[in-house]
Computed example of a mutant assay.
Amino acid sequence: MADPRVIVALDFTDADTAKAFVKRVTPSRCRLKVGMELFTAAGPGLVEHLAARNFDVFLDLKYHDIPTTVAHACSQAAELGVWMLNVHVLGGKRMLVAAREAIERSKHRPLLVGVTLLTSHNDDELPEIGLARGTERQVERLAGIAQDAGLNGVVCSPLEAALLRRRFGKEFVLVTPGIRQAGDAMDDQRRTRTPVDAVTEGADYLVIGRPVTRAPDPAAVLDAINREILIR
């Protein structure tokens, strides 16, 4: 596939295990996500290693700090050659604009997407973080802030993909974690969909972790998912 839509979450605890897994897949089958745990353990060198192997890397660190700090972090991430990185929309519009402007000044300009609500959150937990109940309404509001700040798109659960696609148009990138095949364990995800359902409802990219990384044959699982979503 020239533009793989599956992003495999490398939810490993060390670089050696991640590198061993990566040898079992190819850039034509998937992109790769490096999150906080693996980045903390392995550092920027792993990201550069993956990019050197021609993988598109989504650096999932959810930057959320004062605008200057986030802008500097985004500049450093861009220098690693990542394909996409994210910031947390709850950091506010001024922080989002600072991040976007930092990316625009970089020699390498990755996609910049905003995290709305984590897929581990459900409606009952929103008051704990100072938000009114109504997950879809809150995600839509936060996505609007991201679009107003000039971000390329957002990370959202697949349950909100159809709503956001209608509201923000086809150019607004939707990245959806919480993807599970029928029969897969939910793990710590609350708001999930199958790959086909997520694409049908408007998702551009699907973040899939354990169903691929724990499979006996990850390449075969990716091929099956890619065949399913290709016809949509």
Rank of each mutant, 00 (worst) to 15 (best):
A2P: 11
P4Q: 15
P4F: 11
R5I: 01
V8D: 13
A9W: 01
L10D: 01
F12T: 09
A15R: 14
A15K: 12
D16S: 12
T17D: 05
A18Q: 05
A20K: 10
F21Y: 06
F21W: 04
R24I: 03
V25K: 15
P27H: 09
S28C: 06
C30K: 15
R31E: 02
L32Q: 09
K33T: 02
G35M: 06
G35E: 05
A42M: 01
A42R: 01
G43A: 08
G43K: 07
P44T: 09
L46F: 01
H49S: 09
L50P: 02
F55K: 14
D56E: 13
L59N: 08
L61C: 09
L61V: 03
H64N: 15
D65F: 07
D65S: 10
D65W: 06
I66L: 05
T69Y: 04
V70H: 01
V70A: 05
A71G: 06
H72M: 04
S75G: 12
A78S: 13
L80N: 09
G81T: 06
G81S: 05
V82Y: 00
W83A: 08
W83S: 05
M84I: 01
L85Y: 05
L85N: 13
V87S: 08
H88C: 09
H88M: 08
G92P: 08
G92F: 12
K93I: 04
R94I: 02
R94E: 07
L96G: 07
L96D: 02
L96Y: 00
V97W: 05
A99I: 12
R100F: 00
E101K: 13
R105I: 00
R109S: 03
R109G: 02
L111D: 09
L111K: 15
L111S: 08
G114R: 03
L118Q: 02
D123H: 10
D123C: 08
D124Y: 07
L126A: 13
P127M: 09
A132I: 07
A132K: 13
E136M: 04
R137H: 05
Q138T: 01
L142Y: 03
G144P: 14
A146F: 00
D148A: 14
A149Y: 13
A149G: 04
G150Q: 06
G150W: 00
V154R: 03
C156M: 14
S157T: 14
A161K: 14
A161E: 12
A162F: 04
R167V: 06
K170N: 14
E171N: 13
E171L: 11
F172E: 08
L174I: 01
L174A: 12
G178I: 08
I179D: 08
D184Q: 07
A185E: 15
M186P: 02
D187R: 01
D187S: 01
R190Y: 06
R193Q: 11
P195Q: 10
P195C: 11
P195M: 11
A198F: 02
T200V: 07
E201T: 03
E201K: 10
D204Y: 00
Y205W: 02
L206I: 03
V207M: 04
A215Q: 13
P218R: 11
A219W: 02
V221T: 10
L222D: 03
L222T: 05
D223F: 03
D223C: 09
A224L: 10
N226V: 07
N226H: 11
E228K: 13
E228H: 12
I229N: 14
I229R: 15
I231Q: 10
